[in-house]
Write a protein that binds this DNA or RNA. Structure first.
Lengths: 207, 207
DNA sequence: AACCGTACTGGACGCCTGACCAACATCACA
DNA sequence: TGTGATGTTGGTCAGGCGTCCAGTACGGTT
């Protein structure tokens, strides 16, 4: 059994590596993020990555697992709250939570976009383990919103989901581009509020 | 002066390289796309990339230039058509053209998403040379749509632009993920039509 | 005191990368 | 029939990559 002190420092080290890895993978992509770069950001020797997490793909999976566990926490908390009166308010809550999460964790959207376009083992792992379950959870919510007349009824729900997620994510995902094009910094609170308002007006109308 | 025949085959070779490069860069990212892979896809020896386009970043720029010149052609043709009666129809035309282009050229959206998130020389080059001019061209169109009551008036137009582009692009950009999640193949004509309809209903209402 | 398992270190290895280049092929011209 | 510009080829090269591993440190166990 490892000593308590060692466990503490070990857990801290692992955490630092995972945080650095997520950041680097989001910023530079899987190939662009060199293991030496990740080690430098975490301020640990290169060998430690191999020791704690094995090869690069395993490190990637561990970092993504950690990111999604944070998302799950927020999502679970959301469903625990008392259910809003109607479908429109339910959807509004979901939208606000989503905007807040993506604005606070743009690395998240970046990794999803990076892998979602590839036909490869990482995409399959990501979808099967994390994305599909979440999709299955929000699908009934979207369907009910369609039945309640809040969202267009005669289009397949998958299109509404991608339209919503895309509309929300893009400006945060491409924050650097947005800054250079318009001067607006999407990470600032005022911009986050403006984007929330934009999405609500587009998807929920002016109610 | 080069002989005519040589010019022909040379131009064809360059074209094949550029097409292969765009495809590989979109699919694998800048780092993931190896020069040997691009050469193999174009079915030319590795040395030819260097001869025709120089170093890898120059090849990337040439491939992106080619992609944007195609977009410009379509966009110019759009503005040449007789102006529609009102702002809603003008916007509808733009949306349909955009959906059509992204559906037909998903590599385009993938490269934009890849670089738009990075604070680097390729993003700056991309924005300054290509994205900003297009943004400046469609901005007045969005503003007029806001003034005409077609789009929400009291939000900065940049948010509407990113919401629209994101809503349109996401499902085509992440086509592989969409297929695995829902079974829907966004590249099929029926799905393209459904997505066009979804976007129109969300952004233009049920008029 | 002898031993063990965990955490960590840093150097080395082989492979693959992008870049480079000398040689060669082709054909319009002199 | 040379000659030179253009296009093309395959091999080489240095550097960087992910991976591997022998070795160290150290507290707990016996």
């Amino acid at each position: 059994m490892p000593r308590a002190a060692a466990l503490d420092t070990s857990a801290d080290t692992r955490e630092r590596i995972l945080a650095a890895a997520l950041e680097a993978f989001a910023e530079l992509g899987f190939d662009g993020a060199r293991t030496r770069e990740i080690a430098a950001r975490a301020d640990v020797p290169l060998g430690l990555l191999q020791y704690h997490f094995g090869a690069k793909p395993k490190l990637w999976r561990a970092a993504v697992d950690r990111a999604f566990s944070q998302l799950r926490e927020g999502l679970d908390g959301l469903f625990d709250e008392p259910a809003p009166a109607d479908e429109r308010e339910r959807l509004r809550t979901l939208i606000r939570a989503h905007v807040g999460f993506v604005a606070a964790n743009p690395e998240f959207a970046r990794i999803m976009h990076d892998e979602g376009k590839r036909r490869g083992p990482r995409m399959r792992w990501l979808v099967d383990r994390h994305v599909k379950p979440i999709y299955d959870a929000i699908l009934p919510l979207v369907t009910r919103a369609q039945e309640g007349g809040v969202l267009p009824a005669d289009v397949p729900p998958i299109h509404l989901v991608y339209a919503l997620v895309g509309a929300v994510d893009a400006i945060f995902h491409q924050a650097e581009e947005c800054k250079r094009i318009s001067g607006v910094d999407p990470t600032e609170p005022a911009a986050i509020a403006a984007h929330t308002r934009t999405i609500e007006l587009l998807f929920l109308g002016s109610h």
